[in-house]
């Protein structure tokens, strides 16, 4: 009950933001929503399966460059098509990558994902004829639901139609992920997180489940990356850099990986705090590094972990 109430209030607030908040804050919500989608996926792997990826920026990069290629090179402007293509591209790349990575756990899994991420980063950087190198590529303004909103001033476009479009994508992403983690599949992932050897004796084929979770998380990262590209207007290789992957894990930990909504809280706090700190001093990394260190040492459960958690009462 209480959770439903908090959710309803949060949703109402997010819907109302473009009407009540200054335009600057409205625009900050866009990366929040895009990262929200990414982190929902990442946490399926981190919080639910127990695998920490240090390479998920790879899939953000894939999604974002898909948007750039489609709107630029291929003149495909429909956002629906872009998001769908980003999802498919991310899934197609993730399938073989996941097949390699899920054979390992812990530090080796983290290193292998990092290596794959850096392969893509280097590719983006070095094959500049195709990708624009470190300059990156522009992303043209996509059509929303088949409507070309090219005449609208950019700010108005982003703070209005694009804002609500992102919100709908985020809500759909939340609903689908909620379904996934509350399915028999989601339960099996949790057994693997807690005790893979025991899961196997129950007949749960651990690599298959890890693979599936990895591919789903990559699809989420791809869609989130495509969503992120439009407000930025330009994509560049740093999207796929390993520190970006590290920041994703940071955001998840910040909100709390043990809870479903933790990563969303993490993304929100990270983006607003980063913006605030950067407006005061240019050294946001120093402050954020200290915050991360404090989190790891004192509050590994993240912000949501700070509240005494009531046991979720399930229907008997």
């Amino acid at each position: 009950m209480r959770q439903a109430l908090v959710l309803a209030v949060a949703l109402a607030a997010v819907v109302a933001v473009p009407w009540i908040a200054p335009i600057y804050h409205v625009l900050l919500m866009l990366p929040f929503m895009a990262y929200g989608v990414v982190l929902l996926g990442l946490n399926l792997l981190f919080g639910y399966t127990g695998l920490v990826s240090f390479g998920h920026a790879l899939f953000i990069g894939l999604g974002a460059y898909t948007a750039a290629f489609l709107t630029g090179l291929f003149k495909v402007r429909a956002l629906e098509v872009i998001l769908l293509t980003a999802a498919v591209v991310a899934a197609v790349v993730a399938m073989p990558v996941a097949a390699f990575c899920v054979r390992y756990v812990k530090i080796y899994f983290g290193m292998l994902t990092l290596a794959f991420g850096m392969v893509f980063y280097t590719f983006l950087l070095k094959f500049y004829r195709l990708t624009g190198g470190d300059e990156g590529m522009p992303v043209a303004r996509p059509f929303l639901l088949g409507r070309d909103l090219g005449d609208m001033p950019k700010i108005e476009y982003l703070a209005g139609p694009y804002y609500y479009y992102s919100l709908v994508v985020l809500i759909v992403a939340i609903a689908v992920m909620w379904r996934i983690v509350h399915s028999p599949f989601g339960l099996c992932l949790k057994t693997i997180r807690d005790n893979p050897a025991k899961a196997e004796t129950l007949g749960i084929s651990v690599p298959h489940y890890r693979w599936t979770a990895f591919v789903i998380s990559a699809v989420y990262a791809g869609v989130g990356g495509a969503l992120l590209a439009t407000p930025t207007g330009n994509v560049d290789p740093t999207l796929a850099y390993w520190t970006h992957s590290g920041n994703l894990v940071f955001m998840t930990l910040l909100g709390g990986f043990a809870s479903f909504f933790g990563p969303l809280v993490g993304a929100f706090v990270f983006i607003y705090l980063q913006d605030f700190v950067m407006s005061v001093v240019p050294y946001w990394r120093l402050v954020f590094g200290a915050i991360l260190a404090a989190l790891v040492i004192f509050a590994p459960g993240g912000l949501l972990g700070l509240f005494p958690r009531r046991r979720v009462i399930e229907a008997a």
């Binding site: 399915s183 028999p184 099996c188 229907a315």
Partner: peptide
């Protein structure tokens, strides 16, 4: 309960139902 449900789900070969409701 979750532990036993996981075992039953595995026995019934329903662990791969990604979008089904456990409840």
């Amino acid at each position: 309960r979750e532990t036993l449900q996981a075992a039953v789900a595995a026995r019934l070969r329903r662990g791969r139902r990604i979008f089904a409701s456990l409840r």
